Amino acid sequence: MTAIEIRNLTKSFGPVRAVDDVSFTVAAGTITGYLGPNGAGKTTTLRTLLGLVTPDSGRALVNGQPYAGLAHPLSEVGAVLEATNFHPGRSARDHLRVLCTAAGLAHRRADEALDTVGLTDVAAKRVHGFSLGMRQRLALAGALIGKPKVYILDEPANGLDPAGIQWLRGFMRHLAHEQGAAVLVSSHVLAEVEQTVDQVVIIARGRLVRQGSLDELVTNGDAAIRVRTGKPAELAAALERAGGRVERADGLLRVRGLDAEAVGQVALSERIVLTEVAQERSDLQQVFLELTEGES
């Protein structure tokens, strides 16, 4: 089921086209990474989704509705755009209780959310003394208040230490894969995104560059199958007879034109034992840089 829908979204600020005819969707039960260089239009897209920016054309919908049309927004959408929107004199618990009151939710949800993000021990402390990482966790707690099924997160790992980033990864996976939520996350930490997301949307200079599953993005259609065997010459000859293109280097074969299953079938028919069969992949950072080269 489509939870987030961006269709032909366009927004300009004066002469600057921040978002230019961008379209993509986010399905329930998935984590989608929204990536692009600084100034690519990511935050403008997210702010439009949340009704904070009015598009020039196109639409940005959550559960089939503009954000302003949602009857109970905090129970449908959890959002983190920045970790600075707190009254410095309020405690973490009081900040969340204000949100509960505004949304018509029981105040116990404040303590439940604080427990989920690991801030129970500092619930009574004023926010002005919080580190950036603690503010990020508090912002995430605010997103959890209404137990929504859609999450829009802009750079949620900013300020988190390695343990916090690991926690965030598990947190997002739990929301999407166990609770069936749709998670749209903008991030510049590509190595972390690669370990977390299911789908990727890349924009540059406001325009869509590429979208698809993470596997589709980092596995080129003509990517090599890496093969090791004790009989490389015999296997290479058999693979070439089967239509494969084989490169040899130090006992390692790189095969193009055949998928891993076909390589295995050839080896089986020739009674050749394989010690390794793997599809080579590019890492997300390499793909991202290739797709956005010259676009920052």
Rank of each mutant, 00 (worst) to 15 (best):
G129M: 04
G129I: 11
F130I: 04
F130K: 04
F130E: 02
S131L: 13
S131D: 13
L132M: 15
L132A: 09
G133N: 10
G133K: 04
M134H: 12
M134K: 03
M134E: 01
R135P: 13
R135V: 14
R135H: 13
R135I: 12
R135N: 13
Q136H: 07
Q136P: 13
Q136F: 08
Q136C: 06
R137E: 10
R137G: 13
L138Y: 08
A139C: 08
L140S: 09
G142S: 04
G142L: 08
G142D: 09
G142Y: 07
A143R: 01
A143M: 05
L144S: 05
L144K: 07
I145T: 01
G146F: 12
G146L: 06
K147A: 15
K147G: 03
P148S: 07
P148A: 08
K149G: 15
K149S: 15
V150F: 05
V150A: 09
Y151D: 05
Y151W: 02
Y151V: 03
L153T: 13
L153G: 07
L153R: 01
L153S: 06
P156Y: 07
P156Q: 09
P156F: 04
A157E: 08
N158Q: 03
G159M: 08
L160K: 07
L160F: 11
L160I: 09
D161K: 05
P162C: 11
P162V: 12
A163Y: 03
G164C: 10
G164I: 07
Q166R: 15
Q166W: 00
L168E: 06
R169D: 10
R169Y: 12
F171A: 05
F171W: 11
M172K: 03
R173E: 14
R173L: 13
H174M: 13
H174D: 15
L175K: 05
H177E: 12
E178I: 01
E178W: 06
A181G: 15
A181M: 05
A181T: 05
A181N: 10
A182S: 09
A182Q: 06
V183R: 02
V183C: 09
V183Y: 06
V183Q: 05
V183K: 01
L184I: 11
S187K: 00
H188C: 08
V189D: 13
L190C: 04
L190T: 03
L190M: 12
L190N: 05
A191D: 14
E192K: 02
E192H: 09
V193T: 10
V193G: 00
V193D: 01
E194N: 07
V197P: 03
D198S: 06
D198P: 13
V200W: 00
V200E: 02
I202M: 07
I202G: 00
I203H: 03
I203D: 03
I203N: 02
A204I: 11
A204F: 01
R205I: 06
